[in-house]
């Protein structure tokens, strides 16, 4: 067994530097690497390019990095719910590349799986396809989209083991598995870190080969963006 465990978030992020490109898992605030984000805020690294489906909210998630102006460029599919983001984008302080959500996932997966690029129908005929190669297959038009290149992927899972194997819970899975192994170094934080041999290999969602560092995270807030409920009869 090849051990991937590190002592905690500080050791896991020891070699992050200014101007790096990071992938961050999560959909809205669901399944985001809360510990890694807190450490990035603390470390004060700047000039970052962040690949993440969303940009957090004003006072949580990637919004915390935006507040401190640590992010130079965001690559996302949906960035509502964040006033500071909107302000920085409209003022030109922040460079923003908006791309279709499925394209974002597939550009991660291409990087993970050794494809330099993929063809997708998403965005054909729109401004997303401007300047990109397009091609017809069986009478339908597709856009060439390149695999991402990133220095670190920060992902969050529910359970993990010493070998870096990961299991996710509910819709907190989202982009996290696609980003594992898609960057030079993948750092996984988990709610529960267990000894190797504890997880049933049949139940593993992401094999440890895609994860370089794993640690048990602390103090998860798991904020809910839209608390929608119904009354008990």
């Amino acid at each position: 067994m090849i051990r991937k465990t590190v002592s905690g978030v500080t050791e896991a992020l020891v070699d992050i530097k200014d101007n790096m490109t990071f992938m961050l898992g999560g959909f809205g605030l669901c399944g985001i690497p809360e510990n890694a984000i807190a450490e990035l805020v603390k470390s004060n690294v700047k000039g970052l390019t962040c690949i993440s489906n969303n940009a957090g909210v004003d006072n949580f998630g990637l919004g915390l990095l935006l507040q401190k102006k640590q992010i130079k460029k965001m690559i996302s599919s949906y960035v509502g719910e964040n006033d500071e983001f909107e302000r920085q984008m409209l003022s030109g302080e922040l460079d923003v590349e908006l791309i279709p959500q499925g394209t974002l996932a597939e550009r991660c997966r291409a990087a993970q799986g050794g494809f330099p690029a993929i063809y997708t129908p998403a965005g054909y005929g729109t401004e997303v396809a401007e300047g990109k190669e397009t091609r017809e297959f069986d009478g339908k038009m597709y856009v060439l989209e390149h695999a991402f290149k990133a220095d670190f992927a920060f992902v969050k899972a529910w359970k993990g083991d010493e070998a870096g194997n990961l299991i996710f819970k509910g819709t907190a899975r989202n982009f996290n598995p696609c980003m594992c192994g898609a960057a030079k170094i993948t750092v996984a934080e988990v709610e529960e870190l267990v000894p190797a041999g504890t997880l049933n290999p049949d139940h593993v969602h992401v094999p440890g080969i895609f994860v370089q560092r794993i640690f048990q995270g602390k103090n998860y807030e798991k904020r809910i963006e839209q608390r929608t409920v119904r009354k008990k009869q």
Binding site: F27, L29, E81, G170, A172, R227, T228, V229, R230
Partner: peptide, 20 residues
């Protein structure tokens, strides 16, 4: 449908970020 009050789970949401 939406969960009953008190049964919402931050890890189970829809694309509108609503608890489901």
């Amino acid at each position: 449908p939406f969960p009953f009050e008190g049964e919402e789970d931050a890890d189970i949401i829809n694309a509108g970020k609503q608890t489901i």
